[in-house]
Amino acid sequence: MTLSRRSTLMLGLGATAGLMLPGIAHAQDVVRNNISSFRAQHWRDHFDTLGKATIVADTQSRALHYWNADGSDYRIFPTSVPISDDLTKRGYTSIVRKKVGPSWTPTASQMERYPDWKPIPPGPENPLGTHAMYLSWPAYIIHGTHDTRKIGRKSSDGCIGLYNEMIAQLFDLCPVGTQVRVI
């Protein structure tokens, strides 16, 4: 049997593919804890009108969906979500206040669990990142984070976190009064 360069190449590629198949099959079975698998959302499934602007925070797919007042601007942002269902508040709310350079204060439930926690001023150690949009629910915030490992993971005590660059964009887009649904 005579082997040409082309047949040798094809044999090599076939062998390489054969060696890779078990790894590819295994990779499909792996549960990934930090990847968002964005699910399509449409604002009409959640609200009657777009109002000033609309946000749907999907805790299952770990994505925040944004629409402007006339629906011409639609964006999706990857997020961190609450660690457990116990910490996840779902339902309708709105943005009632916005702050650049927020300070962080532990909630009462956090103080029960971690009595040594203290308030943190704005800066790189602050878990709220560079921007915060406060919801009408007490202690629930859409905010940034300096810890980029948290995005795409269950890592918060109830808030929705975004990369600092993305919360800055969203902050500029959302007026106070933006309607929000957490699902």
Rank of each mutant, 00 (worst) to 15 (best):
F77Y: 15
F77P: 01
F77Q: 03
F77D: 02
F77L: 11
P78T: 10
P78H: 06
P78V: 07
T79S: 08
T79D: 05
T79M: 12
S80L: 05
S80K: 00
S80I: 04
V81C: 05
V81F: 08
V81M: 10
P82T: 07
P82F: 00
P82S: 04
P82W: 00
P82V: 02
I83Y: 03
I83W: 02
S84C: 12
S84D: 14
S84T: 15
S84Q: 09
D85P: 00
D85N: 15
D85C: 03
D85L: 12
D86T: 14
D86E: 15
D86H: 10
L87K: 09
L87V: 04
T88Y: 03
T88G: 06
T88A: 13
T88W: 02
T88R: 03
T88Q: 10
T88K: 05
K89D: 11
K89W: 11
K89E: 13
R90W: 04
R90K: 15
G91P: 08
Y92R: 13
Y92M: 11
T93I: 01
T93D: 11
T93E: 06
T93W: 01
S94E: 14
S94Y: 06
S94G: 10
S94A: 14
S94P: 04
S94D: 12
S94W: 03
I95Y: 01
I95W: 00
I95K: 00
I95D: 00
V96M: 09
V96L: 07
V96W: 06
V96D: 04
R97D: 13
R97T: 07
R97L: 12
R97N: 13
K98F: 10
K98W: 10
K98T: 09
K98I: 09
K99P: 03
K99W: 02
K99C: 13
V100P: 05
V100W: 09
V100K: 12
V100G: 09
G101L: 08
G101W: 06
G101D: 14
P102I: 00
S103C: 03
S103K: 12
S103L: 04
S103R: 13
W104T: 08
W104G: 11
W104N: 11
W104Y: 12
T105G: 05
T105F: 11
P106L: 00
P106T: 02
P106Q: 02
P106Y: 01
P106K: 01
P106R: 00
P106M: 00
T107P: 11
T107M: 06
T107D: 06
A108S: 14
A108E: 15
S109Q: 10
Q110I: 10
